[in-house]
């Protein structure tokens, strides 16, 4: 809805003046908000690159100069976080793949095929999106620790498998938990996409005698490739960034299976207070994968929208 072209029709001289003043005001507000959204991020990055004397004595958002510059914080944080980063990826990638597949199937069964009573099932899925995780936390802890300790059962298996360690078995209950609670929201994302597809697509295939499995594999899967990308990125970010489940199911931030989010809130703390250089460096490293994904995703998302509206 840009209406810059139609402005010139009225009284050119007065409008130009008016528009210029307005434009300046308009762009000033836009730039102020750019500052608002970027300032905490810039402050964090600049602080991560400073020595502790520079952190204490310079303006937090100014870049480090001369002696004040150091990579020691990033180095320390990297060494402290590298194994946790592996844990986070080992948890988030399989969980996201299973999640996206199951969610796509569910959305297909509830959208592209019509049957009576599906509204009831759908509502149960939708409520699942809005359940605060606290409401299942005590059962979850009891289930994975006492009733079905799958982590302990799998540990001997995991310790003989090459490339992974025995303690990685503690990530299995986390993966299953993330899959189970991630299905509803991913289902909704797929569903809104499937609803936008023309119904004739499925109807025509049905008249040709295609089975439901064939419709899913031959028509729906290929056509929903862009949506798989969108949901994958969304859900990966969610699981990678998640804190509460890891906090509940992993013994402590010091255990070797701790995902990265678990370590950030306590890193760089000593009796003399928080070392913000280290803390910011750790926060920056932890956020880096999702920031990279997001920047790449912004483009891809635009493409997805273009193909959708075409």
């Amino acid at each position: 809805m840009s209406q810059s072209t139609s402005d010139t029709n009225i009284d050119v001289a007065s409008v130009v003046e008016d528009v210029n003043l307005r434009r300046i005001g308009h762009y000033t507000i836009v730039i102020l908000f750019l500052g608002f959204f970027l300032l905490p991020l810039i402050t964090g990055i600049m602080t991560a690159l400073k020595t502790s004397t520079a952190v204490a004595n310079t303006l937090p958002f100014m870049p480090p100069l001369g002696d004040g510059f150091t990579l020691a914080n990033l180095e320390y944080a990297f060494n402290r976080l590298s194994y946790a980063f592996v844990n986070s990826l080992l948890m988030a990638i399989p969980a996201t793949i299973i999640n996206v597949l199951l969610a796509s199937m569910a959305a297909f069964g509830l959208t592209m095929v019509r049957w009576r009573g599906q509204m009831g099932i759908l509502v149960l899925f939708l409520i699942g999106i809005f359940v605060p995780y606290q409401a299942v936390l005590v059962p979850l802890a009891r289930f994975w620790n006492n009733i079905f300790p799958i982590a302990d059962m799998l540990e001997p298996v995991f310790s003989v498998v090459p490339l992974i360690q025995g303690y990685h078995s503690a990530l299995v209950p986390l993966i299953i938990t993330h899959v189970a609670y991630g299905i509803p929201i991913c289902m909704l994302l797929f569903r809104s996409y499937y609803q936008s597809l023309p119904n004739s697509l499925v109807e025509a295939a049905k008249i040709d005698g295609a089975s439901i499995t064939k419709i899913y594999r031959r028509i729906i899967l290929p056509i929903s490739k862009p949506m798989f990308g969108v949901v994958f990125i969304y859900q990966f970010t969610q699981i990678y960034n998640e804190f509460l489940f890891s906090f509940t199911l992993v013994t402590s931030a010091n255990s070797s299976e701790a995902p990265i989010t678990l370590i950030i809130p306590t890193i760089g703390t000593s009796t003399s207070g928080i070392d913000f250089g280290i803390r910011m460096a750790a926060a920056f490293l932890a956020a880096l994968p999702t920031i990279i994904l997001y920047v790449a995703f912004a483009e891809q998302f635009a493409k997805g929208l273009e193909t959708e509206s075409a």
Partner: peptide, 14 residues
Amino acid sequence: ALSFVVTAQLWLWM
């Protein structure tokens, strides 16, 4: 794109 955990650190410092 940031997690709650990271945002909390940024604002703790702010």
